[in-house]
Design a protein around this nucleic acid. Sequence first.
DNA 1: CCGATGCGTCAATGATACTGACCCAAGCGG
DNA 2: CCGCTTGGGTCAGTATCATTGACGCATCGG
Lengths: 185, 185
Amino acid sequence: MPAKISAQSAEAPERSPLPAGRNLLFLREEELRLAQDLLFFGYRDFTAGADEILAELGMGRAHHRVLHFVGRRPGITVGDLLGILAITKQSLGRVLQPMVEDGYVTQTPGRSDRRQRLLTLTEKGAALERRLFERQRETIMRAYREAGPVAVEGFRRVMRGLMGEQATAAFELLEGPAAEPGTSR
Amino acid sequence: MPAKISAQSAEAPERSPLPAGRNLLFLREEELRLAQDLLFFGYRDFTAGADEILAELGMGRAHHRVLHFVGRRPGITVGDLLGILAITKQSLGRVLQPMVEDGYVTQTPGRSDRRQRLLTLTEKGAALERRLFERQRETIMRAYREAGPVAVEGFRRVMRGLMGEQATAAFELLEGPAAEPGTSR
DNA sequence: CCGATGCGTCAATGATACTGACCCAAGCGG
DNA sequence: CCGCTTGGGTCAGTATCATTGACGCATCGG
């Protein structure tokens, strides 16, 4: 509700003057602890808006993830989705099943492999995903705009660097070419 | 299991050439969805290492947060910690109590207000926090080093922008002056 | 035809979080 | 000194998200 955010660049006072040697000041312990704080607060508030909407519908973050990734890769297989989310079949099933029953997601047998259940958002599902996206969009857009394009590029580079191999693979599968269903793993 | 990481800088191809008008390309929907992905994967892997250590000790992320923030602000009051974590007394109690019993954290009555229980890490607690930090340090340090100082600054600016007011306040209280115990709220 | 694969499902467990109510001890104003 | 407020703890009940391990079924593929 309130008002001013004022991203005061409080300029770190550069306390201990002797780090490694070069300009590696940004690798000092204090700087790394700052990163921990930023990730904690930032991630929490990033998800907060969508969480409110989800709560009204009796859903949780897990539902949002399904909507998000199925929306991003219509026709994705259950296996690929599991690979992206890195959770167990159980956990996904508990969330996915009701979403199918409630008409947010459809399962259609794969044409080349009929064992597969290709997942796609229904109109209802796409609408909810849209609504959740719009909410987070505001948060990200504000942060991006205030920070500027150079900062955004830096943000991306750092976030990518945080990912391990498994996530990097999933990420590249996602952002990459419109993978033909059943590609991964 | 896996092997090669190869952080191939796949350089976004800049698909649709006509955004808003200026150089606001980075605010397009696709770019914002990319941010969602990055935050999801990045945050997950950022916490993954510490989670493993915690699991061995029968603890969870909540315990880590307590260790982290108490370590950052020795002598913090329970109320201030609650404000930072933004959880209920119940949730904190369930985690904090065992940590006191197991000798990770000490509670000492405030000298000016004896109702307060000022929280401080014991040596044991500090050691564990240290261990957890070292694990995350590797992850962050790698990401920071690969990305470079400019990117790091951008990362910080964006993450700060993601925070809401409540988090911003807590954040500034944390990073700011060595607040005299009992300042906030 | 038989083994591997894709998917669903049963049962049990644990961590994290919530709400609302209530209690105790200490601070504080009158 | 008497209330009221505040800092903190606690009880009871509930919900989400995640886990492990085993099993069933249909389909693929050599």
